[in-house]
């Protein structure tokens, strides 16, 4: 077993590992933030997976046909927002259970992208034949020259940096703006919010649109930063993981970031752990298992806090 611990130590002392953690966390972080703002408004955005797929695909197509990766990014974001609005329309206007809307949106997203890959490329599973661009990487001057830290923190994709900056932006939006207050009010108690003149459906729609925007970023990251093409099922359940990370992070931005990093950590570990002589497949379960365990611990904590509150009240 000494080999195991040595190898594990080898992974943890490898700067590339931490670089990978930061990188694989980014799309999940975007998606988790998206789920979080929807959740804060009292709507579970189950359709995140479908939104990401549609955005990732739209981005690649727009980038390939316009020749500009930025056009691709903007198209992905627009697609994300539109999908968010579709969720809002069916859930709020036509009164469909929002979880079932999400499931349907995932179904449509998976189907539509799978169908259109073939239409656009003649290939059945990827868009590698299209010349779509990749978003640029940033080498941060000054930072990149610092020995270890530089190789961990510098040279990431521009969207990776944005995902972490987005945590602060979302925190500001949720806790320091009028819109954020409305969103939280609508989520906590829609009737009370309505009674003081907050448009419940309007606020929820805005939250879902922002959620879709985050899904757009996450999708764009998958097909224009993580990979340079779109493949069938490229998101590989990240939309669902985001839901879990959001639940575990109690739907606030900082918590979302921590749980996303937790997932990213185990995900990166699973790609590195081939050297540990543990079977691949078992290592791959790690991120999901960690999320499940984390969720349970979080739930127990919440329950304890509730009990404490009750006790102090008495």
């Amino acid at each position: 077993m000494t080999g195991f611990w040595e190898n594990l130590a080898g992974i943890f002392t490898n700067a590339n590992f931490y670089f990978a953690v930061i990188r694989v966390t980014a799309p999940i972080l975007f998606a988790t933030l998206g789920c979080a703002i929807a959740e804060k408004a009292g709507s579970t955005n189950m359709g995140m997976e479908g939104i990401m797929l549609v955005s990732a695909f739209t981005g690649v197509i727009a980038s390939a046909f316009s020749g500009s990766v930025w056009v691709g990014l903007i198209a992905a974001l627009i697609a994300g927002v539109l999908m968010g609005l579709v969720v809002a329309y069916f859930a709020l206007k036509l009164k469909v259970d929002i979880i079932l809307v999400g499931i349907a949106v995932n179904l449509i997203g998976t189907g539509l992208t799978g169908f259109l890959i073939y239409v656009f490329t003649g290939d059945r599973s990827t868009t590698t034949s299209l010349q779509s661009g990749m978003l640029p990487q940033l080498n941060i001057p000054g930072l990149q020259d610092i020995p270890v830290l530089g190789s961990i923190l510098s040279g990431h994709n521009i969207l990776t940096y944005l995902s972490y900056i987005m945590v602060a932006i979302m925190a500001f939006l949720m806790y320091k703006t009028c819109l954020g207050l409305r969103i939280r009010a609508v989520g906590e108690n829609p009737d009370a919010a309505a009674s003081v003149g907050v448009g419940v459906n309007k606020t929820k729609t805005i939250a879902l649109a922002i959620s879709g925007l985050m899904g757009g970023f996450a999708g764009a990251f998958m097909s224009m930063a993580y990979l340079s093409y779109f493949a069938k099922g490229i998101t590989a359940g990240r939309g669902y993981i985001a839901l879990a990370a959001c639940a575990m992070g109690s739907a606030n931005p900082l918590g979302s970031m921590l749980t996303s990093i937790l997932f990213g950590f185990f995900y990166a570990l699973s790609t590195y752990a081939r050297t540990l002589n543990i079977p691949d497949q078992l290592v791959t379960t790690l991120p999901y298992l960690a999320t499940l365990v984390g969720l349970v611990i979080y739930s127990i904590k919440v329950r304890q806090n509730e009990l404490k509150k009750l006790n102090t009240k008495e």
Binding site: L107, G111, G114, F115, R124
Partner: peptide, 10 residues
């Protein structure tokens, strides 16, 4: 592509 049927169902 068979995926079309998922769009239809959704």
């Amino acid at each position: 592509q068979i995926d079309l049927v998922s769009v239809f169902e959704g």
